[in-house]
Amino acid sequence: MAEVLVYVDHVDGAVRKPTLELLTLARRLGTPVAVALGAGAGNTAAQLGEHGAEKVLVHEAAEYAEYLVVPKVEALQAAVEAVSPAAVLVPSSAEGKEIAARLALRIGSGIITDAVDLEAGDEGPVVTQSVFAASYTTKSRVTKGTPVVTVKPNSAPVEAAPAAGAVEQLAVSFSDKATGTKITSRTPRESTGRPELTEAAIVVSGGRGVGGAENFRLIEELADSLGAAVGASRAAVDAGWYPHTNQVGQTGKTVSPQLYIATGISGAIQHRAGMQTSKTIVAINKDPEAPIFDLVDYGVVGDLFEVVPQLTEQIKARKG
């Protein structure tokens, strides 16, 4: 069966969940071969093998952390040349999309970004995208070269599928283009201890209605009672109440959790673009006319300062 390359997003060897989802999709198209780069790459093999990777191509080099994007492109290109895959799948992060695009151009292939589903087809993979703030669903194909597709988090289940996970060293030689943009310093984000926003099963978001940074405590308490990630609208982020990394929407993160709870958020098109594919949507808003209510499975018209604490208390009581 044809091999399918999966680009591995990992932090010092710990594979992030979207990559495991890609392995599920890759198995629909052929035999998954993973590509893991940078410090700790060798430690990914066990986890990748458990989820279907037959082979794990590994390359560790300082360049991956010292220069932006291009070293990764060159490694992935080397992997494509070594394996001649039927398709290349990359997680749809900001960096993932940049890597995928440059790779596509180098190998003379079309690219489709932000897939939410993927199936095998007679003429290559059929890719589902959710576009125009999720008001349309499209099905597309790459018609030239080896299809390069980036896939959004939460687009497929993580499945156990034991495979060899055999580690092979990937031979990569960097061109002078690889070192064009130097990363002169890096400040890692502090972990909040909460789930990653794009990967979380439940997201609780606050908007302008939350009214201040200190009030976000209410949102965090609700989130913690559910084991959820915390999101924010751009209005809340622009006001400085919550970090931009937590923004949901067109210029923030796209989330597609099982449950999305919007509190004090009106539901502007740019916000909806980031959450409209959530399975169940709940809103708390004091304005019965707020557009967010057009999307909800359950809505409470009321003051969030009354409703949210009561809800948190109820959840805690029920969970005992």
Binding site: A104, G110, I111, V126, V131, Y136, T138, R141
Partner: peptide, 10 residues
């Protein structure tokens, strides 16, 4: 190098 084959309103 890509082709949209179907577009359906959600």
């Amino acid at each position: 190098w890509t082709k949209v084959e179907e577009a359906a309103e959600r």
